[in-house]
Amino acid sequence: MNRSPIIFFCLIGTVLLVMPTVRNSFALSDAYKDNIYNTGMLKPTDSVLKVSVGGKAPDFELKAVSGERVSLAQFRGKKNVVISFVPAAWTPVCSDQWPGYNIVKEMFDANVAILLGITVDNLPTLFSWTNQMGKLWFPVLSDFWPHGAVAKKFGVLRSDGMAERALFVIDKKGMVRYIDVHNINRRPSLDVLIGELEKLRNQK
């Protein structure tokens, strides 16, 4: 008798069995109740970087949730800048990323660094979403229109219109010193980012 049906079913079974184990992993704060949209597992990265370590960071100016306009150039000669692009408001991993940065202002201060949070969402959405996080000490900028223009300049705009989950460290001279275009389904660990900022401080 032909054994191929057994092999076929076992193969399908194996695929189905493995699928849940490569699922998205995240913890969700009760702060958001049932308002988080589960995106499921996304393609880890989906863009081509346009900046590189050692190169100059493209300048930009965006409107913050607070109403002010924030540019990269305003920190030139004053502060190192960490840019945290996150894909979208009200999604699982993003919602539990900035609140962590929110309790380590001292670590940014110790390394003379400011954090700029950017998404491609519009300001009203960012306002509602970041309100759930408590009071944030860093500006949250909207790269909504022209849609994702700044994300595009850095080469982190995905084909679905979201930004990557990406971190850029830019020194006081405006040079890119560290890039992490992270797997969109995972949160980058704080250890690495703070380590990079400390490295920058020790080099000077």
Binding site: S29, D30, A31, D96, Q97, P99, G100, N102, G134, R187
Partner: peptide
């Protein structure tokens, strides 16, 4: 808990 969770912080 999680270090990243606002309610845990609160």
């Amino acid at each position: 808990f999680s270090m990243y969770c606002p309610y845990c912080q609160k």
